[in-house]
Design a protein around this nucleic acid. Structure first.
Lengths: 150, 150
DNA sequence: TCTATATAGATGCATTTGCATCGATCGTCA
DNA sequence: TGACGATCGATGCAAATGCATCTATATAGA
């Protein structure tokens, strides 16, 4: 019975898609303009930095970042080729590996954050109050992880 | 002075990016599962349908859809090859052309909407009340079209 | 233990995107 | 009118994405 979306739903959807695309593009542009790698690198380096010395398995990264499995596989290959991460065999699972961020990777993340963080502040932080930002987060949170259509 | 984003700004940004990506993926999957073309086709067909008989110039489509110019160029080539749109020379500008949706294109849009609309209803409409959806639209509207960084 | 099935991760191939640039026409200004 | 910069749209080439599938290891069940 939810076949036809209400006008407010359509409008919210349209704005959500449009605004997120636009802001994402701005953030990517800012990184490019500073000669820094794309946001996808940041996402992975960030997760790995949070994970600490233990590192993460690639499949854990696919869960956390929403990138497709083959995408993570290739992204990690690029990051490794560039010395940003290192892959270690994992003892109790011969199929897998553990990925750990290197010092260079940590430094890359730090440099990216100075630009990325500024983008966030400019694109979002300077237009809404903290209360409004919290309200936005709360509303978006209700749309998160909707149950997959069986 | 807006160099460092506040925690609420970071959280709102993260949710915005994550939720929009996730919902977009769901909507795309639903179309694929029904054997329908990707959302990009819908966006263009929708704009052209709204424009009516007069059609639109490609550069107008790039403005309205946020797709890059070369992207629109190739998307239109694919749509034309598939008979969804037709390109007409435009009288008063020898460089340009006018793009108009065909009957087939209108039919494609209609069929896509039955699936796409249901996705919107399920992914957004069923989780927030209309008032909440309006509040979300209003907040997102404040983030729209931020002035480009010079 | 042996077999069947599931999971981790990589990869070949086609499609799409991004980037730079091009050819063509338009508009402006001398 | 003629020259010049701007705009419209297309395109060659490289990189990234999507899709299907593959290899290898792990796990469950007879």
């Amino acid at each position: 019975m939810t076949g036809i979306p209400s006008p407010p739903a359509i409008k919210a959807w349209a704005r959500l898609m449009r605004v997120s695309r636009q802001l994402l593009e701005r953030a990517e542009d800012a990184l490019k303009d500073s000669g820094l790698p794309p946001l996808a690198w940041y996402d992975v380096l960030h997760e790995l930095a949070e994970a600490g010395e233990g590192g993460l398995r690639p499949f854990q990264l696919t869960e956390r970042t929403l990138f497709a499995q083959y995408n993570i596989s290739r992204l990690l290959a690029r990051l490794e080729a560039d010395g940003q991460v290192e892959k270690l065999p994992v003892a109790d699972d011969g199929r897998g590996q553990t990925v750990r961020v290197t010092d260079k990777g940590r430094e890359t993340r730090r440099r990216m954050w100075t630009v990325y963080g500024r983008s966030i502040a400019e694109l979002v932080g300077s237009w809404l109050s903290n209360d409004e930002l919290d309200a936005l987060s709360a509303l978006l949170g209700r749309l998160r992880d909707p149950p997959a259509p069986e």
